[in-house]
Computed example of a mutant assay.
Amino acid sequence: MQRKLARQQKDSKRRNKTRIRIAKQHNKIADKRTDFLHKLSTRIVRENQAVILEDLNVSGMAKNRSPSQSN
């Protein structure tokens, strides 16, 4: 659809319709992704008694060549 839009003449009614169709498709995909994430997070919370998050400085850990030795 986006290729079709790129080929169409600017400021035409058909191009506007195609643009709206593309926007609707993007919204559908975004809604499906958020729905999946919500369902997954609720399932994780229901199945487990405790959920623990750890904030790690991954980029800093990657830069450290010898992580076993502390300075």
Rank of each mutant, 00 (worst) to 15 (best):
residue 10 K to P: 02
residue 3 R to S: 15
residue 50 A to P: 02
residue 30 A to C: 08
residue 27 N to M: 13
residue 24 K to I: 03
residue 64 N to G: 07
residue 15 R to V: 01
residue 52 I to S: 07
residue 51 V to Q: 03
residue 30 A to R: 09
residue 14 R to Q: 05
residue 40 L to D: 08
residue 21 R to E: 13
residue 36 F to M: 09
residue 7 R to M: 07
residue 41 S to H: 05
residue 3 R to C: 04
residue 52 I to N: 04
residue 60 G to H: 05
residue 36 F to Y: 14
residue 63 K to M: 09
residue 37 L to W: 08
residue 34 T to I: 14
residue 63 K to C: 07
residue 17 K to Y: 03
residue 17 K to D: 01
residue 29 I to W: 03
residue 22 I to A: 11
residue 45 V to G: 00
residue 58 V to E: 02
residue 53 L to P: 02
residue 32 K to E: 14
residue 54 E to Y: 08
residue 3 R to D: 15
residue 63 K to P: 12
residue 45 V to Y: 05
residue 27 N to A: 14
residue 29 I to H: 12
residue 12 S to Q: 04
residue 66 S to I: 12
residue 23 A to C: 05
residue 22 I to D: 06
residue 4 K to V: 14
residue 15 R to P: 01
residue 2 Q to R: 12
residue 15 R to T: 00
residue 39 K to F: 05
residue 31 D to R: 09
residue 69 Q to M: 11
residue 71 N to T: 12
residue 29 I to F: 07
residue 56 L to E: 06
residue 52 I to T: 08
residue 65 R to W: 05
residue 64 N to A: 13
residue 64 N to Y: 06
residue 60 G to L: 07
residue 13 K to I: 06
residue 23 A to Q: 10
residue 3 R to W: 01
residue 68 S to K: 06
residue 38 H to I: 14
residue 18 T to A: 09
residue 47 E to A: 00
residue 70 S to N: 11
residue 55 D to P: 01
residue 23 A to L: 11
residue 7 R to L: 14
residue 11 D to F: 00
residue 16 N to S: 07
residue 40 L to M: 10
residue 67 P to T: 05
residue 38 H to L: 13
residue 47 E to Y: 03
residue 55 D to A: 14
residue 51 V to D: 03
residue 40 L to E: 08
residue 25 Q to D: 06
residue 9 Q to N: 02
residue 55 D to F: 10
residue 22 I to E: 00
residue 49 Q to S: 11
residue 62 A to K: 13
residue 46 R to M: 01
residue 33 R to E: 12
residue 18 T to C: 04
residue 1 M to G: 15
residue 17 K to P: 01
residue 6 A to T: 00
residue 23 A to G: 09
residue 9 Q to W: 03
